[in-house]
Design a protein around this nucleic acid. Structure first.
Lengths: 239, 239
DNA sequence: GAAAGGCTTAAGAAATACCTTAAGAAATCT
DNA sequence: AGATTTCTTAAGGTATTTCTTAAGCCTTTC
């Protein structure tokens, strides 16, 4: 069974969202909203399916309908909490006041009632992701490689003692490389991770940005080579 | 039931106050007073709702009416104490002498009787926060950066020796920046923190307020640049 | 060592993010 | 209720980044 459509590994910077909702139309709609926001949705149509996905990989956020056939939504929620700390937004029909209170109590982070406003869903997802990234200590705050220091809190990069200023794209690329310094990233990897879009073969933009990034890095320290090219494979931090 | 619309990151320096009162008019009035004092109120109209909010996040202070429909106010109070140490002000109708003694005994910090005087409420809130903050010490009362001095007790700001007058929004923005002077705040961060509402993407109000704030700051000292723009990322105090 | 395909670089075009201003709306004060 | 302050919204302009293109360079392969 092929779970991920893109066959993708969970990249840093790529945001995966699991949508647990039995109504097919609503599920599709939610996925559409998510995709439009630049994240990667995955549909699950039952509690059992949801749990399978939960065990398969980590998720950055979960949208969970409480009224599921078979397994109860609450059981899924418990499973999520077992799994670790993950942002959860509960979806539920209106006027289920009792449910609302008790689920928020049992560890949901936010709440959306059906019928929902598309923009609101989008905004709540964004907000929750921001909130988690703000408080989440799990992600390293400072990445170091050779004499590069990348501070993801201040979003600053120091090379050879001096601060260099990168554009957002350059910053994300560097962060991607530094988060797995031994890994080789193909152009497709970089593109899909940083741009959040599917990579369609013959594109030169990643090349260009890496070139610019290299320039800025070597401007701060001309004696070092930081990003190496693995011919026919991709790029990697030079160790 | 209106769950707060915020993306409420509990930022340092941002003071959240929960108002538990079933009478809608009184609740609104209290919220108004609180807002005017520069804090962030959240209405709860029942005991169950109150408890939900209690479990959702931490609160700096709670205003609690004892006469609630459904769940008793005392039960809420117990729940509060379970949750940890939080300042609580009890609101209650006059001439409930019995109640006054017993609730103060059960862990309330202060007591206001209806009908109340607006200034008195405001004063009691300030006083109680001050008392707690003295022992807490978590929040600085005077923030300093370059030649800016922000006194959160008096809610005054001095730049280059001279006092400048800011609007409430401007004040909060500046305070947010100064509370973490090295951190970059995105527009969404600023909006959700200062406005306490969900951020819906393409909004210009933060821009405008920051522009106004910059004008006022540079009017007091034209030679300095206090708030810098990090392109594509947000804003930050210039160091 | 020549051809092929991938890589790098530079420059102009397009897109995006940001800043300022001003005017109307809303809230607040008197 | 009228006056004042403050907030929001919209529009036009500026700055910066990002994308595209194309030409030249380098590595591999035959």
């Amino acid at each position: 069974m092929n779970i991920r459509k893109d066959g993708g590994i969970k990249m840093p910077g790529k945001i995966d969202i699991l949508v647990v909702e039995d109504d097919e139309d609503i599920n599709q709609l939610l996925c559409k909203i998510i995709k439009k926001s630049g994240y990667y949705p995955q549909s699950a149509y039952s509690g059992t399916e949801a749990i399978m996905y939960l065990e398969k990989q980590n998720w950055d956020l979960i949208l969970l309908d409480l009224m599921l056939p078979g397994m109860d939504g609450k059981a899924v929620l418990e499973k999520i909490r077992e799994q670790g700390v993950m942002p959860v937004i509960i979806i539920s029909a209106k006027n289920e006041k009792e449910t609302k209170v008790s689920t928020l109590r049992s560890g949901a982070d936010d709440f959306i009632t059906k019928p929902f406003d598309i923009d609101e869903v989008s905004a709540r997802i964004d907000s929750l992701l921001r909130r988690y990234r703000y408080t989440n200590k799990a992600t390293e705050r400072v990445l170091t490689h050779k004499d590069i220091q990348l501070n993801s809190e201040e979003k600053t990069v120091y090379v050879n003692g001096q601060k260099i200023s990168l554009t957002v794209r350059e910053y994300h690329i560097l962060k991607l490389f530094m988060s797995s310094p031994k890994k080789i990233f193909s152009k497709a990897n970089v593109f899909e991770s940083v741009w959040n879009e599917l990579f369609y073969g013959d594109d030169n933009t990643v090349n260009v940005h890496i070139s610019n990034l290299r320039n800025k890095l070597s401007q701060a320290n001309p004696n070092e080579e930081y990003i190496e090219t693995i011919w026919g494979m991709g790029y990697r931090m030079k160790s």
